[in-house]
């Protein structure tokens, strides 16, 4: 488990990092917490010539709220999020998602930005960020752009980021009144990745019917996705067990479903519906109780 040689850069500011990346072109690779990239380098599946370690850029490690929007710096570790009192109060879905990631060691080192940029089709964050309708901030020497979460994940381990762009922060709306959310997951027993992971947010109207439901699903397809069929089926309905179950049955509609040694496409499709139902039930319960 010995990587190929590489040159190491440790910029101190985002500006410094972006000019480095602009110069290095496709030979450069950003290192954040190192929990996706380093294992691949050790296996020699990835052999970047230059590593740009953004781990020392202090401005990237924040978690704050501005006008009802939560902003999380790319370098926030899963543990930072899991243990954030602000998020526990204002965006509990992120806390619940963080808790389900890997193990203690992974959560202590791995970062939300690194995980999202890696775009592993079974990672947990994409489901949550999609369900929250978040956006991703990317900075390059060419400037900053905001990428809506639903445009961010393109394919297996492929995001909308250009090679010279740094994912600097994630912005998600705080939990509104009459809102509830939940993240549920079937862990792969070896990797801890999601065989299926479902993040749901439910907003109820004053009458107690579903004003808006959002469902992000990971682990099922080559990229995490919004289950729009589920969302549409539930909109305007009362969050009864029957309505939720009927809506959840659309969890994998029109989706090309993954198949691997642990779970066939059939089984994953089934799990997607079950976990969607359970996540929606829990989110709706919480919304009703809020």
């Amino acid at each position: 488990m010995i990587p190929q040689s590489f040159e190491y850069h440790a910029p101190r500011t985002v500006a410094e990092a972006s000019s480095l990346l602009a110069r290095l072109g496709s030979d450069g690779k950003i290192l954040a917490g190192g929990h996706s990239l380093v294992p691949m380098m050790k296996l020699r599946l990835a052999a970047p010539k230059h590593i740009v370690d953004i781990g020392r850029i202090a401005e990237l490690a924040h978690i704050r709220e501005e006008d009802g929007t939560i902003q999380i710096g790319a370098l926030a570790t899963h543990f930072n999020i899991e243990s954030s009192p602000l998020l526990k109060d204002r965006c509990p879905l992120l806390v619940e998602t963080a808790r389900e990631i890997g193990d203690v060691q992974v959560r202590n080192r791995g970062t939300i930005g690194g995980s999202l940029a890696h775009a592993d089709p079974a990672a947990d964050w994409p489901a949550a960020i999609l369900a929250l309708g978040g956006e991703i901030l990317a900075v390059s020497a060419r400037g900053e752009r905001r990428i809506p979460a639903r445009d961010f994940f393109l394919d297996v381990m492929t995001s909308a980021l250009e090679f010279d762009e740094i994912l600097t922060a994630i912005r998600v709306p705080a939990l509104p009144a009459r809102g509830g959310d939940a993240y549920l997951k079937l862990h792969h027993p070896a990797s801890g990745f999601a065989v299926v992971g479902v993040a749901a947010r439910v907003l109820l109207n004053a009458q107690g019917a579903v004003q808006e439901a959002a469902v992000g699903i990971t682990g099922v397809a080559p990229k995490a996705y919004r289950a729009t069929g589920v969302e549409a089926a539930l909109r305007g309905k009362s969050p009864s067990a029957r309505h939720i179950e009927a809506a959840a049955s659309h969890a994998a509609d029109g989706i090309e479903v993954n198949s691997d040694l642990y779970a066939s496409a059939d089984y994953r499709r089934h799990l997607a519906a079950i976990y969607t139902r359970r996540a929606l039930e829990r989110a709706a319960e919480r919304a009703a109780a809020s």
């Binding site: 599946l45 089709p121 297996v156 990797s191 080559p222 691997d260 040694l261």
Partner: peptide
């Protein structure tokens, strides 16, 4: 090789891509 031994989870999807 290495892709076969560690990549089974993503192989199918990667090939499709």
């Amino acid at each position: 090789g290495v892709v076969a031994s560690v990549g089974q989870r993503l192989l199918q999807a990667a090939a499709r891509q």
